[in-house]
């Protein structure tokens, strides 16, 4: 078994009175994508800033790629790359110049840096835009350049802080593809996200962060299983009956029904198909017609809600 790429114990970081990290224990296995998931203010960005050596922790210990985060910070930096929350490139410079700058800082020399920049631009389909100032790039192109800058020297561990925030759906999927390709080339990726579908789609493991601590850690399936049963979703013919239906289902299944934005839908946690069956029969007896129903695994959304007590960003965006 290979060593974890990140191993942290009791990591603390406080800003004034605010405990951004309150004893973070994190273990990120080598290879694949690890997603740190959490609501705004959960400490995701602070975790990335501390683990990528931007700011020192106030307490606790961490090893990144086997090196002590504080004592061997320089060595850690030579093996990682960071793509920050906002496109971390200089918008006044051209794409090419941005990458040459990074190459020079990495010690490739002028000629080496130019060669490498050209190569990476090509791989990220930015050759045509190479000589243009980054301020003329679209959001998706900036993100691509940003990722390209992280690959001037291929890192063993790549940090991506909310890589798709603010991107349109197409650029988002494009970025996911890029990340998957990196992983298949052997890079380990730690990304933060507030989008559950992103974690679900991309991550091999997910850590749920709340108030600076890990509240759960596992694969998406494990996390879903941890909240127990699944959920029953019922679509009503007449949405005027939703409240009656919710009440009925609630008392029948002894659970709290959830009313999503769709006015004809009731969702409720349920354990086992038998109970679900009975509940549907009860609706029928009460004269409530349903168009469709589904019985499914809990969504990560529900996992998240039950772990943190917050809904996620998806609802605010909806």
């Amino acid at each position: 078994m290979t060593h974890p790429v990140i191993h942290s114990q009791g990591l603390k970081k406080r800003y004034g009175n605010h405990k951004a990290l309150d004893g973070l224990n994190l273990e990120v296995p080598s290879g694949g994508v690890y997603a740190l998931l959490g609501p705004n203010g959960a400490g995701k960005t602070t975790a990335v800033r501390v683990l990528s050596t931007l700011v020192p922790p106030d307490g606790g210990a961490a090893h990144v790629l086997g090196y002590d985060l504080v004592r061997d910070a320089h060595t850690v930096r030579s093996k990682i790359a960071l793509t920050g929350q906002y496109a971390s490139v200089d918008i006044d410079l051209t794409g090419q110049e941005n990458l040459v700058l990074i190459g020079r800082l990495l010690g490739l020399g002028r000629a080496g840096a130019r060669r490498r920049a050209t190569e990476v631009l090509e791989r990220f389909s930015l050759t045509d835009a190479a000589a243009r100032q980054v301020r003329t790039y679209s959001g998706g192109m900036r993100r691509r350049l940003d990722l390209a800058a992280s690959l001037i020297k291929p890192p063993q561990l790549l940090f991506l802080d909310e890589p798709t925030t603010g991107l349109d759906p197409r650029s988002r999927i494009e970025l996911w593809t890029l990340v998957r390709q990196l992983v298949s080339d052997g890079t380990s990726v730690l990304l933060t996200t507030q989008y559950l579908d992103e974690a679900d789609q991309l991550a091999d493991r997910i850590g749920v962060l709340n108030s600076g601590r890990m509240v759960a850690d596992g694969t998406a399936d494990e996390l879903k299983a941890s909240v127990g049963g699944g959920s029953l979703q019922v679509r009503l013919l007449d949405h005027e009956q939703r409240d009656t239906a919710a009440q009925l289902l609630g008392s029948q299944l002894k659970a709290q029904p959830h009313l999503p934005p769709d006015p004809a839908v009731v969702e409720i946690p349920v354990i086992g198909s038998e109970a679900a069956n009975d509940a549907l029969t009860q609706l029928h007896h009460a004269g409530i017609d349903i168009i469709s129903f589904s019985l499914g695994q809990p969504t990560l959304d529900e996992v998240f809600l039950s772990l943190t007590g917050h809904p996620t960003a998806t609802e605010e965006l909806a």
């Binding site: 030579s78 190569e119 791989r123 291929p154 990196l182």
Partner: peptide
């Protein structure tokens, strides 16, 4: 569209540019 290979020959062990560079 994209095929970013992270495998690039040589130069991988750079410890970064010197202070002056």
């Amino acid at each position: 569209t994209q095929s970013p290979s992270t495998t690039v020959p040589g130069r991988l062990e750079t410890r970064g540019a010197s202070r002056s560079a």
